[in-house]
Computed example of a mutant assay.
Amino acid sequence: MTSYASPSAGLPPQMQLHTGRAVFTEAYAVIPHGVMRDIVTSYLPHWRNSIVWTIARPLSGFAETFSQYIVEVAPGGGSERPEMNPEAEGVLFVVAGQVHLTVDGQAHELSEGGYAFLPPAARWTLNNSSAAPARFHWVRKRYERVDGIDVPPAFVTNEQDIAIRWMPGTRDTWGTTRFVEPSDLRHDMHVNIVTLEPGAVIPFEETHVMEHGLYVLEGKAVYRLNRDWVEVEAGDFMWLRAFCPQACYAGPERFRYLLYKDVNRHAKLPF
């Protein structure tokens, strides 16, 4: 059974040394799980009994296309008006507990590993009718419409029902769980899961226009970010601006992360 990391509750003890790994550079940021504490949470309009860790938001000169939240919904909590921006598309990925989601009148129960794509202007609600807290990632992006290309419909699935697509020549040690086809031009963002088996590598410095958010779901690795090799583990978040070089050596256990990237659109020009 797959397990998923999520933020810690409470605060660290007063005598704990400041030896964390949090860093913000011109090319990337690392938010380790140890600093995602209750004190950095916030609240959202029209959400009941829910708290939010904002781990990415558009910043001029850095990553500009997306925001990413970790939302914790207490029993009885949720929202009938969750998204206030009609141009925002979203992806939900459940890492703990269970939520009741309705999308355009269709009801769905999402448990751990549950995944939902929500197109712009979708009518949706989310509630926790269980007896335990639920946690999920919520990735948001302003949808980029293209004349002659339809907006993709909503869909709900679970990552356990989707086979990993292994990269060629890797002996099934590095692969991606893809929730939409890469060639489907209706989609302008991908939120996938990358898996590296113990000892697997990304053997070159990927350098590309796509911005990235990488939340480590399980395992540990040494990750190359720009000029640095950084140790990361379950519960850490990495935030990469466009063209930040990246590579990876996976650790002694399976290493998996939830990956955001912007795709399938022209680069914006300043005129």
Results as ranks from 00 to 15, higher is better:
residue 75 P to S: 09
residue 105 G to S: 01
residue 110 L to Q: 01
residue 24 F to D: 15
residue 32 P to E: 12
residue 53 W to R: 09
residue 117 F to V: 00
residue 35 V to F: 11
residue 62 F to W: 13
residue 116 A to F: 01
residue 45 P to H: 08
residue 30 V to T: 03
residue 49 N to I: 07
residue 72 E to I: 14
residue 85 N to R: 07
residue 101 L to K: 08
residue 74 A to H: 11
residue 146 V to L: 14
residue 100 H to C: 02
residue 14 Q to Y: 15
residue 119 P to N: 00
residue 94 V to N: 03
residue 13 P to C: 15
residue 84 M to A: 08
residue 85 N to D: 10
residue 39 I to S: 15
residue 129 S to N: 12
residue 64 E to K: 04
residue 22 A to C: 13
residue 97 G to V: 07
residue 90 G to N: 02
residue 22 A to W: 02
residue 119 P to G: 11
residue 146 V to I: 14
residue 135 R to N: 08
residue 52 V to L: 09
residue 20 G to F: 07
residue 99 V to P: 03
residue 36 M to K: 09
residue 56 A to R: 05
residue 77 G to M: 07
residue 105 G to T: 01
residue 85 N to S: 08
residue 77 G to E: 02
residue 43 Y to S: 12
residue 93 F to W: 03
residue 141 K to L: 14
residue 78 G to W: 02
residue 146 V to R: 06
residue 17 L to D: 14
residue 16 Q to Y: 12
residue 106 Q to H: 00
residue 115 Y to C: 02
residue 72 E to H: 06
residue 58 P to S: 06
residue 24 F to H: 15
residue 44 L to W: 09
residue 27 A to W: 08
residue 37 R to Y: 13
residue 52 V to N: 06
residue 144 E to D: 14
residue 146 V to H: 10
residue 61 G to S: 11
residue 58 P to N: 04
residue 72 E to P: 03
residue 99 V to F: 07
residue 30 V to N: 05
residue 136 F to V: 07
residue 131 A to H: 11
residue 29 A to T: 14
residue 15 M to P: 08
residue 13 P to N: 14
residue 99 V to Y: 00
residue 44 L to N: 01
residue 90 G to A: 05
residue 72 E to Q: 04
residue 92 L to P: 00
residue 106 Q to L: 03
residue 53 W to C: 04
residue 35 V to T: 15
residue 137 H to I: 13
residue 46 H to P: 00
residue 84 M to W: 11
residue 111 S to V: 01
residue 112 E to L: 09
residue 65 T to A: 15
residue 111 S to N: 11
residue 129 S to M: 12
residue 27 A to E: 15
residue 39 I to Y: 15
residue 70 I to V: 13
residue 105 G to P: 04
residue 18 H to Y: 09
residue 13 P to K: 15
residue 64 E to R: 10
residue 67 S to H: 12
residue 111 S to T: 09
residue 61 G to N: 13
residue 59 L to M: 08
residue 144 E to G: 13
residue 110 L to A: 00
residue 108 H to R: 02
residue 129 S to W: 06
residue 117 F to I: 00
residue 26 E to D: 15
residue 116 A to R: 03
residue 45 P to E: 13
residue 120 P to T: 12
residue 70 I to W: 00
residue 56 A to W: 03
residue 111 S to F: 04
residue 149 I to M: 10
residue 121 A to G: 00
residue 126 L to P: 02
residue 67 S to K: 07
residue 36 M to Q: 12
residue 42 S to C: 10
residue 97 G to C: 02
residue 41 T to C: 11
residue 115 Y to M: 05
residue 67 S to V: 07
residue 83 E to N: 07
residue 135 R to M: 13
residue 65 T to R: 12
residue 138 W to Q: 11
residue 128 N to L: 04
residue 124 W to Q: 01
residue 51 I to A: 05
residue 109 E to L: 10
residue 62 F to S: 08
residue 76 G to I: 15
residue 136 F to G: 03
residue 34 G to P: 06
residue 89 E to R: 00
residue 141 K to E: 12
residue 98 Q to A: 13
residue 54 T to R: 06
residue 30 V to Q: 05
